[in-house]
Amino acid sequence: MTCGGHYPAAEEPPASCRFCTDERQWVPPTGQRWATLAGLAADGYATEVREVEPGLLGVGVRRHIGVGQRGLLVCTSGGNLLWDPPAFLDEEAVRAVRDAGGLRAVTASHPHMYGAIVDWSDAFDAEILLPEVDAHWLQRPSSAVRTWSGTLPVLPGVTLVQCGGHFPGSAALHWADGADGAGALLVGDTVMVTPGEDRITFMWSAPNRLPLPERWVRGIVAALRPYWFDRIYGGWWLPVLRRDAKRVLEVCADRYIQFLRGEVDLDG
Rank of each mutant, 00 (worst) to 15 (best):
L212M: 15
V221D: 04
W228N: 15
G235M: 02
I220S: 00
W228K: 14
W236F: 12
V217Y: 05
P213S: 14
W236T: 11
E214N: 06
A223V: 06
F229S: 00
P211F: 15
A222G: 10
L210N: 05
V217S: 03
A223D: 10
S205H: 04
G234I: 07
D230V: 07
P213I: 13
R231E: 05
W216T: 12
I232R: 05
E214S: 11
G235D: 01
L210D: 02
G234N: 05
A206V: 11
R209A: 12
G234R: 00
L210K: 10
A206M: 10
P211W: 15
W228S: 15
L212Y: 02
Y227Q: 07
R225D: 13
R209W: 14
G234C: 06
I232T: 03
P213Y: 12
I220N: 01
W228F: 13
S205E: 03
F229K: 00
G219T: 08
W216V: 12
P211E: 14
R215K: 13
P213R: 14
Y227S: 09
L210A: 11
R218M: 08
Y227E: 11
A222Y: 09
W236P: 11
P207E: 07
R225T: 06
R225I: 01
W236S: 09
A223S: 12
G235W: 03
L224K: 00
I220Q: 00
P211K: 15
A222T: 05
R218D: 07
E214A: 11
R231Q: 08
V221G: 00
L224S: 02
V217M: 01
W236I: 04
V221K: 04
L210H: 09
L212S: 05
N208W: 10
V217C: 01
R225G: 01
G235R: 01
A222I: 01
D230E: 12
G219I: 05
V221I: 06
I220W: 03
N208K: 12
R231N: 03
R215Q: 12
V221N: 07
L224W: 07
N208Y: 11
F229I: 07
R231C: 08
L224A: 03
